[in-house]
Design a protein around this nucleic acid. Sequence first.
DNA 1: TTACCTAGTAAGTGATTACTCACTTATGTG
DNA 2: CACATAAGTGAGTAATCACTTACTAGGTAA
Lengths: 220, 220
Amino acid sequence: MSNKIFDAILTQAITKVKTEKQQKIVESAIQLFAEKGYSNTSTAEIAKASGVSEGTIFKHYGTKDKLLLSVILPFVSELFPYMAQELIKKTMSENTTTFEQFLRSLIKDRVEFVTENREIFQIVVKEIVYKDELKKELLPYALANIPPIFKKVLEEFRERGELVDLPADKILKNLVTFLGGFFVSRFLLIDDFNVSEEEIEDAIQFVMNGLRNPQNNALE
Amino acid sequence: MSNKIFDAILTQAITKVKTEKQQKIVESAIQLFAEKGYSNTSTAEIAKASGVSEGTIFKHYGTKDKLLLSVILPFVSELFPYMAQELIKKTMSENTTTFEQFLRSLIKDRVEFVTENREIFQIVVKEIVYKDELKKELLPYALANIPPIFKKVLEEFRERGELVDLPADKILKNLVTFLGGFFVSRFLLIDDFNVSEEEIEDAIQFVMNGLRNPQNNALE
DNA sequence: TTACCTAGTAAGTGATTACTCACTTATGTG
DNA sequence: CACATAAGTGAGTAATCACTTACTAGGTAA
């Protein structure tokens, strides 16, 4: 993460034993932040919703900002580094699957994860869009960690002749653009409570084949 | 728009002659809302930035919310209804182009428009994500107006054999997902000051052909 | 018991919030 | 000019904000 404060909050959020009231605080904060946004949620509201005095929140979390971070950070740290390892495992193994199969399992896996943590996902997206400081911390982190690994995987599949003959950067850019749009639209704009198999399959076909009719002779 | 308050604010924002101070207020509001978000910008800040007393803002706009709307509404009303008419014009004319050409001119045109209004675009996206009320007003409006027209166009091209043999709904869903991701990532996440021709061309190729290597015999 | 720690509380704190109001100044218009 | 209307002001306002502080209660260990 390359950020000491972030590290401290993250390890504390994961390791520290929480009291009942502390859990209630986090639960209420998640629900309220997801619904109304961080800036539009007051600490008084969180206190009331979790049946706790306002002082208790500050005893445990110090500031409202740190409360937000102890909600967000465990999620993002599980969202990304996981991907790195799993990606390599899934592609570089000997009994390699096709790129389409790889993409399918990746999407399904992450859809499941985000479905289980939809409220926190909503908070993360909202605040990355809204709070510049958070964007400036999280975006470079994501951009520095994900692309390199992803690129390797893409290059591997391209060498096997499965992918279009384009630089991995370009492939990645468009893939991330589409997947980003997919997750944000399904989990944030429309609060779809389950993304169907069919929809996932349609998305995969779109990524693989695009919109052009393969029978069409007017190629190029 | 189907909303009387919205209509009133929109027509007033467009038709009413503005004083110098009023223009300064709107300019400063746009800049501040885009940078820090609506919720994190106080009317006092706007007043100071535009060299005007706070009272003046409320004299003209009544509430902070109405000020936001008079910034946003002219933009969205120009972003969408335009598309409807132009879309039909561009596709249904006799000397019809290919779908790829249609897509190219659509993207280039809207990239230009958003580039010219990037700050307002940022405000709109931020507040749709953040303010539930706005999302609930604007999203149904967009969903009710755009898909029907778009669908017609897509069906036209599909009948010509240019597009994959899928229902227009499904094609549209993935296309909108990608284009949404494209605009948001380029104009909001990365504040790209000009989206290059090359990047647009890559996006078009992705939408048309997907990622699969056409020479690959492992089709299906 | 004594001493100490942690969890939790209730009542504050000053600063900031969106908004109001009584008022002055400018701009026409008959 | 006289008078009306609109534009603009700045000092308020109550409410709300994140955060603090002095405190109690209960468990633990020497």
